[in-house]
């Protein structure tokens, strides 16, 4: 017999971001998705802003001056970080999603190290590299310029 008044306990979009004390990979996934959406939004805007260059120098200069403020600079820096992370983590994902770094299947005798832990060092390398790139980018964006 089908029970009628069941309570829907689906976590919803909140479940993409959090939902429990899971491993690092689940939060790497959330950040990857967030960065991807950020880059996409910037990219669509970017096409039209830089498209103004075919209307001559005046049009280009006015487009550039409209995106000159500190807010835009911080926004651009965030996009730079997003690309660094999304790209590096993307390489990790392409490899791991085809089984690289995950080892071979074998009988799980406890204590047992699951695949996420076996590729964890790669994720840590990705994060360190992304941090280094972000620092270099920060120097270029805010100090050198």
């Amino acid at each position: 017999m089908e029970q009628k008044n069941k309570f829907n306990n689906r976590l919803g979009i909140w479940g993409w971001l959090s939902g429990g004390r899971y491993g690092l990979e689940r939060y790497a996934y959330s950040l990857h998705r967030l960065c991807g959406l950020g880059i996409l939004a910037y990219f669509l805007l970017h096409i039209f802003v830089t498209g103004s260059r075919i209307d001559g120098q005046g049009s280009w200069d006015s487009a550039m001056s409209s995106v000159e403020g500190i807010i835009f600079k911080i926004g651009e820096f965030l996009v730079f970080f997003a690309f660094a992370y999304h790209g590096l983590n993307g390489i990790r994902l392409i490899l791991t999603e085809f089984g690289v770094f995950l080892g071979k299947p074998k009988r799980a005798d406890f204590p047992y190290k699951q695949s996420t832990l076996r590729q964890r060092p790669v994720l840590l390398v990705v994060m360190v590299l992304a941090a280094i790139l972000t620092i270099v980018g920060g120097w270029d964006f805010f100090i050198a310029n």
Partner: peptide, 27 residues
């Protein structure tokens, strides 16, 4: 989608280096 991602990785890395790490290139 993955293949496009790899293309972007190469091209956007060049693009980002030229456009946003310009001071590094000067350095």
């Amino acid at each position: 989608f993955l293949l496009a991602g790899l293309f972007i990785l190469v091209l956007l890395s060049i693009h980002m280096t030229i456009m946003h790490l310009d001071q590094l290139l000067v350095a």
